[in-house]
Design a protein around this nucleic acid. Structure first.
Length: 286
DNA sequence: ACTATTTCCTGGATGC
DNA sequence: TGCATCCAGGAAATAG
């Protein structure tokens, strides 16, 4: 499941290979689930667009595009604001659980569950494949796409503390809430809580400032380490190049229920919080 | 304004 | 072997 470090890895891989390339044509599947903009609009905006950048926002991949058509005309909003940057748009992709953005040569067989193919001038193809169709794909005028929440690697300690210190929910649920922090998913929430010595069920508001400080550092540390390792690859996830990250070897609690804690040897537990499996050490986490 | 629950999806694992 | 059932989970929608 691609979370912040995986998406960051994918984005870096994509940026190296598609920036400057031009989308010649686009094919979109007739299954509408992944598409969050009208199919005709996606096709029109992507076709003949030059890819000028690829960025990550939370768990979203943002392709920055320049095309020769006019601005996207959304109902009433931003009509005047569009004028000066009329040709700049963003192609937004969320990989959901099982989504992958592949760079392929045209001869490669089309995988089952391929929902979008962008043919590039360089002769390669960008393919969006997603068996479970939890992934999302849309286009929007540049600068208008703004998922809620703060980037965990940019937020200050003070802002981080103020996000959580009054929350009534379990800290695990709060970490997964994308309106607070964006990009943190199940794996890194569990790993950060383990490193901080905090049980996932603890109500956020009961955490001391000291504990929140520890969590802040733990989260940033685990995300940074995972990015350096190229992300985790579990079952469905493979990077843009098709290579796998290797951070999963560093997981200390995620998926290790029943196994001994690497620190104290107590058995790692698995519980469900807010419908999400949560893994923790009953000895090291309080 | 929050919080909790449900929904969407398929393939792999499990059990009989 | 075959078939049914369960489970994984991000985020939007819905309900409380």
């Amino acid at each position: 499941m691609p979370e912040l470090p995986e998406v960051e890895t994918i984005v870096r891989g994509l940026a190296n290979r598609v920036i400057g390339d031009v989308i010649e044509s686009v094919w979109l599947s007739s299954r509408p689930e992944p598409f969050r903009s009208p199919i005709a609009e996606i096709a029109a905006r992507l076709s003949h667009a030059r890819i000028t950048g690829v960025r990550r926002k939370g768990k979203y991949i943002v392709f920055e595009l320049e095309n020769s058509y006019g601005p996207i005309r959304h109902k009433k909003a931003a009509r005047k604001a569009c004028a000066p940057q009329a040709h700049r748009i963003e192609w937004i992709v969320h990989l959901g659980m099982t989504g992958r953005m592949l760079i392929c040569s045209p001869g490669e067989p089309i995988e089952r569950h391929t929902h979008a193919i962008a043919k590039l001038e360089s002769g390669r193809e960008l393919r969006f494949v997603d068996p479970r169709r939890f992934g999302r794909l849309s286009v929007s005028p540049q600068g208008t796409f703004e998922p809620g929440g703060s980037e965990p690697l940019d937020i200050t300690l003070d802002s981080f503390v103020s996000l959580f210190h009054r929350r009534k929910t379990a800290i695990k649920a709060a970490l997964l809430n994308q309106k607070l922090l964006r990009g943190v998913g199940n794996i890194y929430a569990d790993e950060a809580l383990f490193r901080a010595g905090i049980r996932p069920r603890r109500q956020a508001a009961t955490l001391t400032t000291r504990e929140l400080g520890k969590l802040y550092l733990s989260l940033r540390q685990v995300l940074a380490e995972a990015i350096l390792a190229g992300g985790s690859s579990i079952a469905d996830y493979v990077g843009a190049d098709g290579e796998e990250g290797f951070f999963q070897a560093e997981h200390r609690v995620y998926g290790r229920q029943g196994e001994p804690c690497l620190v104290c040897k107590k058995t790692i537990k698995r519980v469900v919080i807010g419908g999400r499996s949560s893994h923790y050490c009953p000895q090291c986490q309080r």
